[in-house]
Design a protein around this nucleic acid. Structure first.
Lengths: 227, 227
DNA sequence: CGATAATTTGATTTTTCTCAAGACGCGTGG
DNA sequence: CCACGCGTCTTGAGAAAAATCAAATTATCG
């Protein structure tokens, strides 16, 4: 459907990853996202599960979480989207996940119709559309491996590496999302995420100067944590 | 990329599922899969991770598992493919997962080139290609919810329901795959799968006359197990 | 500066995994 | 037709990982 399935999509794949399609750049979606951006506040809903999937969204700036909630409140975040990422394009007429702005963000919208019409007449664009979906699928499956088979330490390490790559920052990672978001993305509890960060700090692999900033002291060792 | 992401794709979605694109039918891929089917034996490799992704595959009959293995042997099955499903179409030049025949199966092959060329000149086909990838992505994300947030009982129940729907059989499910396959698909151990089946039997929700046949005595209750 | 939310830490419980047998099923060959 | 052997599946006991419950600490924002 769209941009980043997880953190890793627009960048070099993480853990067990391979060459993936490039992210959509501005010029790729030329003409499709021309309107003025809308502002969304912290935790504001962009669309909900089962809402009509009429529009496609592009993050102008800020960060978005895509998630689903079980009836008893358990939540799984399927992807984070950041500046430049496109999300919300669905094969069916309804959204299958909800999307919320994490902090403040600016989102540009276009109609599903527009995108599909563009694809219909421009086979290169159509191909890009498919590439994006396929890359997202590959990333989602990488994440399945993480959720199904990796330990808490491996998950957190993979997450930190992915975030670092995303930011093109060698060592300092700024997290826009809360511990709860991270936990729900990694299939863990907030306590386990916190404890794991403490553990990694103890091993001198990272430093956590403030809760939203993480310094990777030994990226190579972190990467080795991922089997 | 292709047909069924998990079990649920070609049929009515499972647990928390929504309307999805239809599966590829024979006529959709007309012209693309014309060659004679190849035979693959039990556990035979169809392609491996990092192999060049030159071909696209269609299950003529039998069943296939798509999976990835960590260096220490932990395996995650990302999808099962059954008769009529198409798999192996990748955005990059390498496969990111391995595929094996589960039992004996007949597989028809076509080249990636052929599919892409077809899509380039036929926008309806291109759209179908995208629909497939997007539907697979949605299914993969459903599975992420299962792997990240559901209990062993919920996972097994969801799996059984999905298999039943796939077979269009109300109550009797024939499993082509081993307990190990099921475990690796659900992110559990073989022992936990087995114990869970025993538990469900004790609750009179199912019957397991032979290990590869499961009778759903109370599908409604099974479905209710999924929050 | 205080109130509130977010995060960390601690103690304990639960779930699932691991290790170890045992049972069962199936196919082969006597 | 039955016995044997091998792979698969089930069951049990104990260990480990992560979840849960609870509290203390730290950050954030008016």
């Amino acid at each position: 459907m769209t941009a980043v399935t997880g953190i890793a999509a627009p960048i070099v794949p993480v853990s067990p990853g391979y060459a993936r399609a490039q992210p959509w750049h501005d010029h790729d979606a030329a003409g499709a996202f021309t309107g003025a951006p809308s502002h969304y506040g912290r935790n504001e809903l962009i669309f909900g599960e089962r809402d009509p999937a009429e529009y496609v969204y592009r993050v102008q700036c800020g960060a978005v979480r895509l998630f689903r909630v079980l009836s008893d409140g358990r939540r799984q975040i399927g992807a984070f989207y950041f500046t430049g990422d496109i999300f919300g394009l669905e094969p069916g007429d309804e959204h299958s996940f909800s999307a919320e702005s994490i902090g403040d963000s600016e989102i540009v919208v276009t109609s599903r119709q527009t995108v599909f019409r563009l694809a219909e007449h421009d086979s290169a664009f159509a191909r890009q559309l498919w590439n994006r979906a396929a890359a997202d699928l590959a990333t989602a499956r990488d994440h399945m491996l993480l959720l199904g088979r990796q330990t808490a330490t491996e998950r957190v390490a993979a997450f930190l590496m992915a975030m670092a790559e995303r930011e093109h920052s060698e060592r300092l990672v700024a997290l826009p999302m809360s511990r709860q978001d991270i936990a729900d993305y990694l299939g863990l509890t907030i306590e386990t995420v916190s404890r794991t960060l403490t553990l990694l700090t103890g091993r001198m692999l990272i430093d956590v100067p403030t809760s939203r900033r993480i310094l990777l002291r030994d990226p190579a060792a972190l990467r080795r944590l991922n089997a």
